[in-house]
Amino acid sequence: MELQHVNVKIFVEGDLSVDPEQFINIFHSWTAEQSCDELLIDVADYRHVPAGPGVVLVGLQADYAMDQAQSRWGLLYNRKAPTEGSNADRFLQAFRAAATACTRLESELPGLKFSRQEFQLFINDRALAPNIPETLASCQADIATFLQSLLGHGNATFAAEPDPRRRFGVLVQTGSNFDLAQFASTA
């Protein structure tokens, strides 16, 4: 099963301690500088919608968002363009992009901190990855390979999204801290 359109959401640690309006300013400056790997197009403000996409930096190949889905703030990387390689490679690409954005945000917004132990990984495509047990079964090994390369050990746990109407994905808990900054710098 080839999985494309990988999404990674790295949660904010604790409550959000900065004014979300600042994400608008930062995302606009990233767009002006074109400072991500993807072509950046615009910033969409959805702060008015409860538990919504928050502030979205819309790109061509991927979107970045400070997302508030399910009432949890986090940096969401949404890969839109297909990428080469194995499923584990694609998980890694998405995680690196998300980690890079997180470290940049942390450095630009003192007080903002992202979790080093918990993130979500999901596939934004119901045709490629319907949220059924068979999907999990078929890509469990790919997820394990990805986590091994991320953490250097196999102690992480992951639980599949239980609601079959929501997209297929897993909530990953790593047990020990991963080094977000070091990870990002290898991007």
């Binding site: 959805y46 979107d63 968002a65 119901r126 109407r165 997209r167």
Partner: peptide, 27 residues
């Protein structure tokens, strides 16, 4: 439900209603 899935997979996760009772998806 179909609108919800399309908003997530093709747009930015938002379903928008217009002043002429249509739906709109952006991006």
């Amino acid at each position: 439900e179909a609108m919800a899935d399309l908003a997530e997979e093709y747009s930015d996760g938002i379903v928008h209603i217009t002043t002429r009772q249509d739906f709109q998806l952006h991006f």
